[in-house]
Design a protein around this nucleic acid. Structure first.
Ligand SMILES: [Zn+2]
Ligand SMILES: [Zn+2]
Ligand SMILES: [Zn+2]
Ligand SMILES: [Zn+2]
Lengths: 162, 162
DNA sequence: TATAGTAGGTTACTATATAACATTTTGTGA
DNA sequence: TCACAAAATGTTATATAGTAACCTACTATA
């Protein structure tokens, strides 16, 4: 992992804040952040890079010191997705923590192909514009996915181009 | 397949025009539209719904009257993708014919969850705006994916909502 | 404490995609 | 027209992603 991903920010802060938000949300909604769900969320928040379901599976198996089966992970992922605690990156079959789970929002993801970090942009002006253009086509949108692949600012600065 | 997908348009026209474009492009670029590539393209153009790689695999196996293996299909798909003759829908692991392969463009896909038809919108104004917003983040974009799930105009008209 | 609802375990399977290496076909220059 | 290299395809095996179905255990609450 390139160093800049952790520079200029206390990532333990990211993790604990994500877990705190999750607890608040679950309390508010009367749903349960069970041990497994919490563990999966914590694993996903190990970095600002996305995790695949099988990465999580391996990690969870290690933590539990026994083989965990896919459904266990997928159920936890479904729960976290349903409650907006994580997002799924369609173009990479991977999952990433949401950095604003308490406020409803539409996201655009910037995926760096060098350091694999993912940045989540919220409610960009173009979202409304896109929704409107789509509406004018007579299309009734239920979900909009925007994912941008490229090179992040830090990697560009370091002369990366892939 | 709901009827409206074929109404008001001669789909044989779509197919033959797609094949003709592909031939032109290959001629121009000095690359080859081999039998397999042509067959795969034709299979993909059987409708305005996306095909999965394994749909294509089955179809191709039938046509060739012998088992075709996955790499055969994936190689053809890679060729067609590289040359802009088809697009990949990331959110459904599926492939669809490009309706304007001769002109470079950025696309936005409207995916109907009722009739499964996919419409390709080109170079919408928001594209430039999005590119600019992303650029302002210092991010160097290489590829933008926009996919919208919802219900198409025809299905809405027929009272569908899923 | 019955009992309904929710969460998790287990097994088996389906779906999507690629690696690695062999063979065939095609184009090109000697 | 033969030799050779490049491109395309065949073949086998495997990696990765996700789900169905059924069972067990826990939890709330009447
Ligand atoms: Zn962080
Ligand atoms: Zn978010
Ligand atoms: Zn058509
Ligand atoms: Zn196109």
């Amino acid at each position: 992992m390139p160093h800049h991903i952790l520079k200029d920010h206390d990532h333990n802060q990211c993790i604990s804040s994500a877990l705190r938000s999750a607890e608040d949300i679950c309390l508010q909604r009367g749903i349960k952040l069970t041990q497994i769900r919490r563990q999966v969320l914590e694993i996903i928040w190990q970095g600002h890079q996305p995790s695949t379901a099988y990465d999580i599976l391996d990690c969870l198996s290690q933590q539990q010191n026994k083989k965990v089966a896919p459904p266990t992970v997928y159920r936890a992922l479904d729960f976290l997705l349903d409650n907006g605690l994580i997002h799924r990156l369609e173009s990479m079959n991977a999952y990433i923590g949401c950095d604003a789970p308490t406020t409803p929002h539409q996201s655009c993801f910037l995926i760096c192909s060098h350091c694999r970090s993912v940045a989540e942009l919220h409610d960009m002006p173009i979202y409304a514009a896109l929704a409107e253009e789509v509406r004018q086509e007579g299309f009734k949108a239920k979900g909009i996915m925007i994912e941008v692949k490229g090179v992040c600012a830090d990697c560009v600065e370091q002369g990366q181009s892939a």
